[in-house]
Design a protein around this nucleic acid. Sequence first.
DNA 1: CAATCCGCGTTATAACATAACAGACCAATC
DNA 2: GATTGGTCTGTTATGTTATAACGCGGATTG
Lengths: 143, 143
Amino acid sequence: MSQCEAHGHVKRSEPSLTKNQQLVWDVLRHASAPMSAYAILDEVRADGLRAPQQVYRALDKLVDTSLVHKLESLNAFVACAQPCCAEHEMVCFAICEACGSVDEFADDQIEQQFAEWTKRSGFVRRQTAVEIKGLCKGCAAQA
Amino acid sequence: MSQCEAHGHVKRSEPSLTKNQQLVWDVLRHASAPMSAYAILDEVRADGLRAPQQVYRALDKLVDTSLVHKLESLNAFVACAQPCCAEHEMVCFAICEACGSVDEFADDQIEQQFAEWTKRSGFVRRQTAVEIKGLCKGCAAQA
DNA sequence: CAATCCGCGTTATAACATAACAGACCAATC
DNA sequence: GATTGGTCTGTTATGTTATAACGCGGATTG
Ligand SMILES: [Zn+2]
Ligand SMILES: [Zn+2]
Ligand SMILES: [Zn+2]
Ligand SMILES: [Zn+2]
Protein backbone atom coordinates (compact mmCIF):
# COMPACT_ATOMS: atom_id res chain seq x y z
CA MET A 1 0.00 0.00 0.00
CA SER A 2 1.50 3.30 -0.96
CA GLN A 3 -0.09 5.98 1.04
CA CYS A 4 1.20 9.48 1.07
CA GLU A 5 3.21 9.14 4.28
CA ALA A 6 5.49 6.94 2.24
CA HIS A 7 6.25 9.72 -0.19
CA GLY A 8 7.69 12.10 2.28
CA HIS A 9 5.44 14.85 1.10
CA VAL A 10 4.99 17.80 3.34
CA LYS A 11 1.46 18.08 4.59
CA ARG A 12 -0.17 20.67 2.42
CA SER A 13 -0.94 24.01 3.91
CA GLU A 14 -4.64 24.49 3.86
CA PRO A 15 -5.69 27.29 1.57
CA SER A 16 -7.80 29.86 3.32
CA LEU A 17 -11.42 29.28 2.59
CA THR A 18 -14.19 31.78 2.24
CA LYS A 19 -17.31 31.44 4.32
CA ASN A 20 -19.27 29.53 1.70
CA GLN A 21 -16.38 27.29 0.84
CA GLN A 22 -15.91 26.53 4.52
CA LEU A 23 -19.56 25.68 4.96
CA VAL A 24 -19.57 23.31 2.03
CA TRP A 25 -16.32 21.74 3.06
CA ASP A 26 -17.55 21.16 6.60
CA VAL A 27 -20.60 19.37 5.29
CA LEU A 28 -18.51 17.11 3.10
CA ARG A 29 -15.92 16.39 5.76
CA HIS A 30 -18.58 15.10 8.09
CA ALA A 31 -20.51 13.19 5.47
CA SER A 32 -20.36 9.41 5.50
CA ALA A 33 -20.97 9.08 1.80
CA PRO A 34 -20.66 11.13 -1.36
CA MET A 35 -23.15 13.96 -1.60
CA SER A 36 -24.73 15.64 -4.57
CA ALA A 37 -24.55 19.40 -4.84
CA TYR A 38 -28.25 19.62 -4.08
CA ALA A 39 -27.92 17.42 -1.01
CA ILE A 40 -25.19 19.75 0.19
CA LEU A 41 -27.43 22.70 -0.51
CA ASP A 42 -30.10 21.20 1.75
CA GLU A 43 -27.54 21.03 4.56
CA VAL A 44 -26.35 24.61 4.23
CA ARG A 45 -29.73 26.21 3.84
CA ALA A 46 -29.75 26.76 7.58
CA ASP A 47 -26.59 28.83 7.12
CA GLY A 48 -28.24 31.11 4.62
CA LEU A 49 -27.30 29.61 1.29
CA ARG A 50 -30.19 29.35 -1.07
CA ALA A 51 -29.14 28.80 -4.66
CA PRO A 52 -27.33 25.94 -6.40
CA GLN A 53 -24.81 28.41 -7.77
CA GLN A 54 -23.55 29.20 -4.35
CA VAL A 55 -22.81 25.57 -3.70
CA TYR A 56 -21.40 24.89 -7.14
CA ARG A 57 -19.08 27.86 -6.90
CA ALA A 58 -17.72 26.69 -3.59
CA LEU A 59 -17.34 23.18 -4.95
CA ASP A 60 -15.46 24.45 -8.00
CA LYS A 61 -12.90 26.04 -5.79
CA LEU A 62 -12.62 23.09 -3.44
CA VAL A 63 -12.18 20.71 -6.35
CA ASP A 64 -9.56 23.01 -7.88
CA THR A 65 -7.52 22.86 -4.71
CA SER A 66 -8.04 19.09 -4.37
CA LEU A 67 -9.76 19.39 -1.03
CA VAL A 68 -12.78 17.78 -2.63
CA HIS A 69 -13.20 15.33 -5.48
CA LYS A 70 -16.04 14.83 -7.86
CA LEU A 71 -17.17 11.30 -8.50
CA GLU A 72 -18.17 11.53 -12.11
CA SER A 73 -20.09 8.31 -12.17
CA LEU A 74 -22.26 9.41 -9.26
CA ASN A 75 -22.52 13.13 -9.92
CA ALA A 76 -21.48 13.54 -6.35
CA PHE A 77 -18.70 14.98 -4.26
CA VAL A 78 -16.46 13.71 -1.46
CA ALA A 79 -13.92 15.30 0.83
CA CYS A 80 -10.42 14.23 -0.07
CA ALA A 81 -9.24 11.42 2.13
CA GLN A 82 -5.54 11.70 1.48
CA PRO A 83 -3.04 14.13 2.91
CA CYS A 84 -1.11 14.74 -0.28
CA CYS A 85 -3.59 14.24 -3.03
CA ALA A 86 -2.59 17.31 -4.95
CA GLU A 87 0.87 15.84 -5.46
CA HIS A 88 -0.56 12.92 -7.39
CA GLU A 89 -1.69 13.18 -10.98
CA MET A 90 -4.15 10.49 -10.25
CA VAL A 91 -6.74 9.44 -7.78
CA CYS A 92 -8.63 6.18 -7.55
CA PHE A 93 -11.98 5.45 -5.99
CA ALA A 94 -13.47 2.12 -5.10
CA ILE A 95 -17.21 2.53 -4.91
CA CYS A 96 -19.31 -0.14 -3.24
CA GLU A 97 -22.56 -0.65 -5.06
CA ALA A 98 -24.14 -2.27 -2.03
CA CYS A 99 -23.41 0.09 0.84
CA GLY A 100 -22.36 3.21 -1.06
CA SER A 101 -19.04 3.52 0.71
CA VAL A 102 -16.20 5.11 -1.19
CA ASP A 103 -12.55 4.35 -0.64
CA GLU A 104 -10.05 6.81 -2.04
CA PHE A 105 -6.59 5.46 -2.63
CA ALA A 106 -3.37 5.99 -4.50
CA ASP A 107 -1.18 3.25 -5.82
CA ASP A 108 2.30 3.88 -7.12
CA GLN A 109 2.35 0.76 -9.25
CA ILE A 110 -0.85 1.72 -10.99
CA GLU A 111 0.31 5.26 -11.43
CA GLN A 112 3.54 4.08 -12.96
CA GLN A 113 1.74 1.90 -15.49
CA PHE A 114 -0.24 4.90 -16.59
CA ALA A 115 2.95 6.89 -16.85
CA GLU A 116 4.34 4.25 -19.17
CA TRP A 117 1.25 4.20 -21.28
CA THR A 118 1.55 7.97 -21.50
CA LYS A 119 5.13 7.70 -22.73
CA ARG A 120 4.16 5.21 -25.42
CA SER A 121 1.09 7.03 -26.61
CA GLY A 122 2.28 10.61 -26.60
CA PHE A 123 -0.81 11.67 -24.71
CA VAL A 124 -0.13 14.48 -22.25
CA ARG A 125 -1.96 13.59 -19.10
CA ARG A 126 -3.38 16.34 -16.98
CA GLN A 127 -5.65 14.38 -14.73
CA THR A 128 -6.74 10.79 -14.40
CA ALA A 129 -9.95 9.66 -12.77
CA VAL A 130 -10.45 6.04 -11.86
CA GLU A 131 -13.75 4.82 -10.52
CA ILE A 132 -13.97 1.16 -9.64
CA LYS A 133 -17.41 -0.25 -8.97
CA GLY A 134 -18.11 -3.44 -7.16
CA LEU A 135 -18.46 -4.71 -3.62
CA CYS A 136 -16.37 -3.62 -0.68
CA LYS A 137 -14.78 -6.31 1.42
CA GLY A 138 -17.54 -6.23 4.00
CA CYS A 139 -20.41 -6.38 1.55
CA ALA A 140 -18.71 -9.11 -0.47
CA ALA A 141 -18.40 -11.22 2.68
CA GLN A 142 -22.14 -10.99 3.31
CA ALA A 143 -23.07 -11.96 -0.22
CA MET B 1 0.31 -2.03 -26.92
CA SER B 2 -2.00 -4.83 -25.98
CA GLN B 3 -4.95 -4.73 -28.23
CA CYS B 4 -7.46 -7.49 -28.34
CA GLU B 5 -5.95 -9.23 -31.32
CA ALA B 6 -3.17 -10.15 -28.96
CA HIS B 7 -5.51 -11.98 -26.64
CA GLY B 8 -6.75 -14.47 -29.11
CA HIS B 9 -10.32 -13.69 -28.25
CA VAL B 10 -12.97 -14.76 -30.65
CA LYS B 11 -14.70 -11.82 -32.23
CA ARG B 12 -17.93 -11.47 -30.35
CA SER B 13 -21.14 -12.41 -32.02
CA GLU B 14 -23.24 -9.33 -32.34
CA PRO B 15 -26.37 -9.48 -30.27
CA SER B 16 -29.50 -8.91 -32.30
CA LEU B 17 -30.63 -5.38 -31.92
CA THR B 18 -34.12 -4.01 -31.96
CA LYS B 19 -35.04 -1.22 -34.32
CA ASN B 20 -34.40 1.56 -31.82
CA GLN B 21 -31.18 0.07 -30.57
CA GLN B 22 -29.97 -0.26 -34.15
CA LEU B 23 -30.82 3.35 -34.91
CA VAL B 24 -28.96 4.61 -31.87
CA TRP B 25 -26.02 2.36 -32.49
CA ASP B 26 -25.75 3.49 -36.10
CA VAL B 27 -25.63 7.09 -35.01
CA LEU B 28 -22.86 6.38 -32.52
CA ARG B 29 -20.85 4.25 -34.90
CA HIS B 30 -20.68 7.05 -37.40
CA ALA B 31 -20.06 9.79 -34.88
CA SER B 32 -16.64 11.36 -34.73
CA ALA B 33 -16.92 12.27 -31.08
CA PRO B 34 -18.89 11.29 -28.00
CA MET B 35 -22.55 12.24 -28.14
CA SER B 36 -25.01 13.09 -25.42
CA ALA B 37 -28.29 11.24 -25.33
CA TYR B 38 -30.07 14.39 -26.45
CA ALA B 39 -27.70 14.89 -29.35
CA ILE B 40 -28.44 11.33 -30.40
CA LEU B 41 -32.13 12.04 -30.07
CA ASP B 42 -31.80 14.93 -32.50
CA GLU B 43 -30.25 12.56 -35.02
CA VAL B 44 -32.94 9.91 -34.77
CA ARG B 45 -35.90 12.24 -34.78
CA ALA B 46 -36.06 11.75 -38.52
CA ASP B 47 -36.56 8.05 -37.87
CA GLY B 48 -39.55 8.65 -35.65
CA LEU B 49 -38.07 8.70 -32.18
CA ARG B 50 -39.32 11.55 -30.09
CA ALA B 51 -38.68 11.08 -26.40
CA PRO B 52 -35.50 10.85 -24.34
CA GLN B 53 -36.70 7.58 -22.86
CA GLN B 54 -36.54 5.88 -26.20
CA VAL B 55 -32.92 6.84 -26.58
CA TYR B 56 -31.99 6.10 -22.99
CA ARG B 57 -33.58 2.68 -23.15
CA ALA B 58 -31.65 1.80 -26.27
CA LEU B 59 -28.47 3.12 -24.70
CA ASP B 60 -29.02 1.09 -21.55
CA LYS B 61 -29.11 -2.07 -23.57
CA LEU B 62 -26.15 -1.12 -25.76
CA VAL B 63 -24.09 -0.27 -22.71
CA ASP B 64 -25.11 -3.54 -21.04
CA THR B 65 -23.80 -5.48 -24.00
CA SER B 66 -20.65 -3.35 -24.21
CA LEU B 67 -21.38 -2.16 -27.71
CA VAL B 68 -21.42 1.34 -26.32
CA HIS B 69 -19.68 3.00 -23.41
CA LYS B 70 -20.71 5.90 -21.30
CA LEU B 71 -18.10 8.53 -20.60
CA GLU B 72 -19.06 9.53 -17.11
CA SER B 73 -17.03 12.69 -17.06
CA LEU B 74 -18.72 13.96 -20.21
CA ASN B 75 -22.21 12.54 -19.76
CA ALA B 76 -21.83 11.23 -23.25
CA PHE B 77 -21.70 7.98 -25.15
CA VAL B 78 -19.35 6.39 -27.65
CA ALA B 79 -19.42 3.25 -29.75
CA CYS B 80 -16.98 0.69 -28.48
CA ALA B 81 -13.76 0.77 -30.43
CA GLN B 82 -12.44 -2.62 -29.45
CA PRO B 83 -13.39 -6.03 -30.73
CA CYS B 84 -13.31 -7.83 -27.42
CA CYS B 85 -14.21 -5.22 -24.90
CA ALA B 86 -16.70 -7.37 -23.07
CA GLU B 87 -13.91 -9.79 -22.18
CA HIS B 88 -12.11 -7.07 -20.24
CA GLU B 89 -13.18 -5.97 -16.79
CA MET B 90 -11.80 -2.61 -17.60
CA VAL B 91 -11.80 0.04 -20.23
CA CYS B 92 -9.69 3.15 -20.46
CA PHE B 93 -10.36 6.38 -22.29
CA ALA B 94 -7.97 9.15 -23.14
CA ILE B 95 -9.97 12.28 -23.70
CA CYS B 96 -8.35 15.25 -25.40
CA GLU B 97 -9.51 18.48 -23.85
CA ALA B 98 -8.46 20.45 -26.91
CA CYS B 99 -9.99 18.57 -29.83
CA GLY B 100 -12.48 16.34 -28.04
CA SER B 101 -11.11 13.14 -29.51
CA VAL B 102 -11.48 10.00 -27.44
CA ASP B 103 -9.14 7.06 -27.60
CA GLU B 104 -10.35 3.81 -26.10
CA PHE B 105 -7.66 1.38 -25.13
CA ALA B 106 -6.90 -1.63 -23.02
CA ASP B 107 -3.61 -2.27 -21.33
CA ASP B 108 -2.75 -5.59 -19.76
CA GLN B 109 -0.15 -4.11 -17.46
CA ILE B 110 -2.57 -1.59 -16.09
CA GLU B 111 -5.26 -4.19 -15.75
CA GLN B 112 -2.92 -6.44 -13.84
CA GLN B 113 -2.00 -3.72 -11.38
CA PHE B 114 -5.66 -3.23 -10.64
CA ALA B 115 -6.05 -6.96 -10.21
CA GLU B 116 -3.29 -6.90 -7.61
CA TRP B 117 -4.82 -4.00 -5.80
CA THR B 118 -8.06 -5.94 -5.75
CA LYS B 119 -6.34 -8.93 -4.20
CA ARG B 120 -4.80 -6.80 -1.48
CA SER B 121 -7.89 -4.80 -0.67
CA GLY B 122 -10.57 -7.47 -0.77
CA PHE B 123 -12.72 -5.30 -3.00
CA VAL B 124 -14.69 -7.31 -5.54
CA ARG B 125 -14.40 -5.46 -8.78
CA ARG B 126 -17.28 -5.56 -11.18
CA GLN B 127 -16.30 -2.78 -13.53
CA THR B 128 -13.55 -0.23 -13.76
CA ALA B 129 -13.82 3.03 -15.63
CA VAL B 130 -10.75 5.08 -16.36
CA GLU B 131 -10.99 8.48 -17.93
CA ILE B 132 -7.76 10.28 -18.61
CA LYS B 133 -7.96 13.95 -19.51
CA GLY B 134 -5.23 15.89 -21.19
CA LEU B 135 -3.92 16.57 -24.66
CA CYS B 136 -3.69 14.05 -27.45
CA LYS B 137 -0.40 13.72 -29.25
CA GLY B 138 -1.47 15.97 -32.09
CA CYS B 139 -2.81 18.76 -29.91
CA ALA B 140 0.19 18.57 -27.58
CA ALA B 141 2.49 19.07 -30.56
CA GLN B 142 0.70 22.27 -31.55
CA ALA B 143 0.83 23.70 -28.08
C1' DC C 1 -54.78 -20.16 -22.50
C1' DA C 2 -52.68 -17.58 -18.84
C1' DA C 3 -48.49 -15.73 -17.06
C1' DT C 4 -44.28 -13.51 -17.83
C1' DC C 5 -40.92 -10.85 -19.94
C1' DC C 6 -39.33 -7.40 -22.88
C1' DG C 7 -39.53 -3.61 -25.79
C1' DC C 8 -42.28 0.37 -27.31
C1' DG C 9 -44.53 5.12 -27.04
C1' DT C 10 -46.03 8.86 -24.29
C1' DT C 11 -46.48 12.50 -20.72
C1' DA C 12 -44.67 14.42 -16.95
C1' DT C 13 -41.16 15.36 -13.67
C1' DA C 14 -36.84 14.92 -11.23
C1' DA C 15 -31.98 15.81 -10.76
C1' DC C 16 -27.86 18.08 -12.13
C1' DA C 17 -25.56 22.27 -13.77
C1' DT C 18 -24.78 26.91 -15.80
C1' DA C 19 -25.85 31.79 -17.76
C1' DA C 20 -26.19 36.34 -16.80
C1' DC C 21 -26.59 40.46 -14.05
C1' DA C 22 -25.27 43.36 -10.21
C1' DG C 23 -23.28 44.60 -5.82
C1' DA C 24 -19.48 44.16 -2.05
C1' DC C 25 -14.85 43.72 -0.91
C1' DC C 26 -9.87 43.99 -1.11
C1' DA C 27 -5.38 44.76 -2.88
C1' DA C 28 -2.40 46.90 -6.29
C1' DT C 29 -1.06 50.88 -8.71
C1' DC C 30 -1.27 55.40 -10.59
C1' DG D 1 -7.13 59.06 -2.53
C1' DA D 2 -9.11 57.53 -6.79
C1' DT D 3 -9.15 54.01 -10.15
C1' DT D 4 -8.73 49.53 -11.63
C1' DG D 5 -8.84 44.54 -11.62
C1' DG D 6 -9.84 40.42 -9.37
C1' DT D 7 -12.55 37.49 -6.52
C1' DC D 8 -16.46 36.30 -3.86
C1' DT D 9 -21.30 37.06 -3.23
C1' DG D 10 -26.48 36.81 -3.99
C1' DT D 11 -30.22 36.28 -7.15
C1' DT D 12 -33.30 34.98 -11.01
C1' DA D 13 -33.79 32.38 -14.80
C1' DT D 14 -32.65 28.76 -17.81
C1' DG D 15 -30.37 24.82 -19.81
C1' DT D 16 -29.05 19.94 -19.74
C1' DT D 17 -29.24 15.21 -18.32
C1' DA D 18 -32.01 11.40 -16.63
C1' DT D 19 -35.98 8.86 -14.71
C1' DA D 20 -40.97 7.78 -13.10
C1' DA D 21 -45.09 5.98 -14.31
C1' DC D 22 -48.72 4.43 -17.29
C1' DG D 23 -50.56 1.50 -20.81
C1' DC D 24 -49.98 -1.24 -25.07
C1' DG D 25 -48.41 -5.11 -27.94
C1' DG D 26 -45.61 -9.06 -29.31
C1' DA D 27 -42.81 -13.13 -28.14
C1' DT D 28 -41.97 -17.13 -24.99
C1' DT D 29 -43.21 -20.66 -22.15
C1' DG D 30 -45.49 -23.81 -19.09
ZN1 LIG E 1 -7.76 13.13 -2.66
ZN1 LIG F 1 -20.11 -2.13 0.81
ZN1 LIG G 1 -15.04 -1.02 -25.61
ZN1 LIG H 1 -6.52 16.62 -29.40
